[in-house]
Design a protein around this nucleic acid. Structure first.
Lengths: 201, 201
DNA sequence: CAAACAAGTGAATCATGATTCACTTGTTTG
DNA sequence: CAAACAAGTGAATCATGATTCACTTGTTTG
């Protein structure tokens, strides 16, 4: 009879892979993607380097996966804010605040995801997710323009600009942590003005 | 009597260095910083690799210098626009338009300067120049806030956000070149709204 | 011209991590 | 238990460009 993987082994393999991903993410949280070497992941996870290659085809696959998982959490949080009940302006405000607050909650990780120089493969994933963010904002901006609560504009361009503004404006505050509340509010206000909220009070 | 460099030799050395920088920049214009290898620079300039090391301590010094020279041209153009006669709004509009139009004039170079994944040394220079841009905008925004033609805001944050918005929003258009005029105008309008131009017409 | 020096050369070496692979250890089945 | 297989191992190898250095060529001076 042939060898067949038992549930126990399957379980262990899943745990091992997830352990490697956790080890990798914790390295990135501490030292950015520069700290993510196969050696470091292996020793952090308490296995040999060869073992890492049983779970990931190569380093790009591992780093990209770490990036993807961390970024998806952020995207989902922003997405949830944009889908809250409320006016277009209120939802955009919530999204900007969510993005900023979460970044301040894990500054090094935020920096790694947003701006650290990384391998081309990870950078490619970064561009993809910028487009994902952009698409989320674009939909809400388009809705606002159509319903007349935002000024006339090209939603796709405004959305990309918004993503750029949110990312770049946090770079300074992220490593000179001043008053996060004030920064968050200022960024939110910048975004609201930028999309031209029509105030009919 | 000791050997002493004659003016002719000094001349030739200056020309050689400038030739190497030209060769390097033309490589970047074509293929970004990824195309900037010492081998390529040497063969493009028609010299041996060893010669490159007589003019630049190492690769970082060369790439950083190429980046610096190209970026300074852009910074100066934006600076000039911001120092034009005219209202705060008009100057900010001119700056955004200048930035966009120049980017469309040399898309690959713009991409290399703005967003290409590069060595840490070049990336460090990039961060520096983002701060330079930011400082230019910050001064004008602060002026606008003080004179009451812009809404209340934190000039340093708004300035950084503006720089991020300009950079990010062009990334898409730069490689799917659509109608540059429309994009430029839309970016300008975004920036003007973002800084809260108070319209007292 | 020849001594003294600097510029130019490119094959060989180095540096940094990723990746491999021959081997060991653990699991499954009859 | 032993055959059949997969997981785990880490020292050795590889890949990619940067960098060096022993040597050649050109320049300057008396």
């Amino acid at each position: 009879m042939a060898y067949r993987e038992t549930p126990m082994v399957t379980q262990r393999k899943l745990a091992q892979k997830s352990g490697l991903l956790h080890a990798a993410e914790s390295l990135v949280r501490e030292g950015g993607f520069a700290a993510l070497t196969i050696q470091a992941v292996a020793s952090q996870a308490g296995v040999g380097v060869g073992t890492v290659y049983r779970y990931f085809r190569n380093k790009d696959e591992l780093s990209t996966e770490v990036f993807r998982r961390a970024t998806i959490r952020e995207v989902e949080a922003v997405k949830a804010a944009l889908q809250l009940d409320g006016s277009v302006a209120a939802r955009l405000a919530a999204a900007a605040e969510t993005f900023a607050q979460r970044a301040f909650g894990a500054p090094k990780l935020a920096w790694a995801l947003i701006a650290e120089p990384v391998d081309p493969a990870v950078d490619h994933a970064r561009l993809q997710y910028r487009r994902t963010y952009s698409a989320l904002f674009e939909a809400v901006i388009a809705e606002g323009v159509e319903s007349g609560v935002l000024q006339e504009q090209i939603p796709s361009l405004s959305a990309a600009a918004l993503v750029g503004a949110m990312a770049e404006s946090l770079l300074g505050p992220l490593d000179h942590p001043s008053c996060n509340e004030v920064t968050t509010a200022a960024l939110r206000d910048f975004c609201l003005r930028a999309v031209g909220v029509i105030d009919n009070s």
